[in-house]
Simulated scan of single mutants.
Amino acid sequence: MALLHNRVSNKELKERLMQETEPRTTISFYMYHPIANPQAFRDELWKGLHALKVFGRIYVAHEGINAQISVPVSNFDALRQYLYSYEWMNGMRLNIAVEDDGKSFWVLRIKVREKIVADGIDDPNFSMERKGKYLKAKEVNELMQNPDVLVIDMRNHYEYEVGHFDNAIEIPSDTFREQLPMAVDMMKGREDKPVIMYCTGGIRCEKASAYMLHRGFKNVFHIEGGIINYVHQVKEQGLEQKFIGKNFVFDNRLGERVTEDVIAKCHQCGQPADTHTNCANDACHLLFIQCDACKATYEGCCSTACQEVIHLPEEAQKELRKGKDNGAHIFSKSRERLRPRLDDR
């Protein structure tokens, strides 16, 4: 049987990545399209992408594909040709990263999921066939001049915190499945108002636009290709930049700088800062914002308790990590949930 999974340790893979001399391009893409056999498609896709030296994180489900990857520059055209060889992905938008050092991923992981974005929707009448109208950057800027327009951010708190569109409404939750009904409730009574929905690369706001229409909203738009595509179009066309700060991304970079504005604060000292980091204590690995001064003071940790842990012998640290699976929980930390951990400093 052909190898369809990585068998090399993360440490070695990271070392290999750092030793690469050819630059890489970081790309994200998604497509809502019925896939009859996600597991078979997953295995076929792994072989095709592995041959092109693609790294990244890809989810496949009956409803489609969601991917964040990097590829050697010399293989970019071959990658596009391979993806477009599937009729349903032919012409699919490939979002190229705004700010990229090529070190976003070090391994290829493709997983079969129930959905490509967890939405909590169990209404059998809901369909992605009816969704909001796409907006290009110029159209976004023009529509935002309308004082009645509602601009809704469909990202999590830690994403909104470091960067967002001017006057955007935050849906205060750390999970998309909670945000969907919350957005409907928050906008109740304004069903006739024009609504612009946005997210990082377009996948969440596209589904959110369909859900808002399903729940009775009349005039729903979403930004084509999300923040990433918007920023590219603004630069290419010399438009006014309406997005302020950093665009949070779910890879090793943890952010792309869009404007020089720093709109967030260090979670430890409260000074202006917008650099996300994971706590240096691997038994914690909490995602939080830390300024350079606090990084030095706390040695990259979120609290003095974690700082004490990193100075323990490695065997003692391993004992503390046993049975702990931080996983996606490191990305589920609103400011309110962070505070109890940071207050012990």
Results as ranks from 00 to 15, higher is better:
residue 344 D to G: 12
residue 271 Q to T: 14
residue 133 K to M: 07
residue 119 D to F: 01
residue 33 H to D: 00
residue 123 D to Y: 02
residue 52 L to N: 13
residue 251 D to K: 02
residue 343 D to L: 10
residue 184 V to P: 01
residue 211 Y to K: 03
residue 225 G to R: 00
residue 166 D to R: 15
residue 52 L to Y: 13
residue 126 F to R: 07
residue 9 S to V: 01
residue 250 F to T: 00
residue 148 D to Q: 15
residue 6 N to H: 15
residue 296 A to E: 15
residue 164 H to D: 00
residue 137 A to T: 05
residue 241 Q to T: 10
residue 280 A to K: 15
residue 174 D to L: 02
residue 1 M to W: 10
residue 326 N to R: 15
residue 327 G to V: 00
residue 41 F to M: 08
residue 1 M to S: 14
residue 162 V to G: 04
residue 90 N to D: 14
residue 99 E to T: 05
residue 320 L to M: 14
residue 247 N to R: 02
residue 136 K to H: 13
residue 170 E to Q: 14
residue 55 F to P: 00
residue 251 D to W: 01
residue 300 G to E: 03
residue 217 F to R: 04
residue 219 N to H: 15
residue 210 A to R: 05
residue 121 I to L: 02
residue 7 R to M: 09
residue 217 F to N: 02
residue 270 G to T: 10
residue 210 A to M: 05
residue 284 C to G: 08
residue 345 R to D: 07
residue 61 A to T: 01
residue 28 S to I: 00
residue 303 S to Y: 03
residue 16 R to W: 12
residue 219 N to R: 15
residue 120 G to Y: 09
residue 147 P to F: 13
residue 40 A to Q: 15
residue 83 L to G: 08
residue 337 R to V: 03
residue 130 R to E: 09
residue 329 H to V: 02
residue 25 T to N: 03
residue 185 D to R: 15
residue 262 V to W: 06
residue 22 E to R: 10
residue 206 E to M: 01
residue 44 E to V: 05
residue 142 E to V: 12
residue 85 S to C: 08
residue 9 S to R: 10
residue 83 L to N: 09
residue 299 E to T: 11
residue 116 I to H: 03
residue 277 T to D: 06
residue 105 F to Y: 14
residue 323 G to L: 05
residue 259 T to K: 03
residue 19 Q to H: 14
residue 334 S to W: 07
residue 137 A to C: 06
residue 80 R to A: 13
residue 208 A to S: 15
residue 162 V to R: 04
residue 239 L to R: 05
residue 43 D to M: 04
residue 233 Q to D: 04
residue 60 V to A: 07
residue 57 R to W: 02
residue 69 I to K: 08
residue 77 D to R: 15
residue 29 F to G: 01
residue 168 A to P: 00
residue 195 V to M: 09
residue 194 P to L: 06
residue 277 T to R: 14
residue 213 L to K: 11
residue 23 P to C: 02
residue 258 V to C: 05
residue 340 P to M: 07
residue 205 C to Q: 01
residue 122 D to N: 13
residue 185 D to Q: 15
residue 194 P to E: 02
residue 279 C to Q: 08
residue 215 R to C: 13
residue 132 G to P: 02
residue 213 L to S: 06
residue 130 R to W: 08
residue 271 Q to C: 11
residue 65 I to Q: 10
residue 34 P to R: 13
residue 243 F to W: 06
residue 116 I to K: 04
residue 315 E to H: 10
residue 213 L to F: 05
residue 84 Y to S: 10
residue 15 E to M: 09
residue 278 N to I: 07
residue 21 T to A: 09
residue 139 E to V: 01
residue 320 L to I: 13
residue 313 P to E: 11
residue 261 D to H: 12
residue 334 S to C: 12
residue 232 H to Y: 02
residue 138 K to G: 08
residue 333 K to E: 03
residue 199 C to L: 01
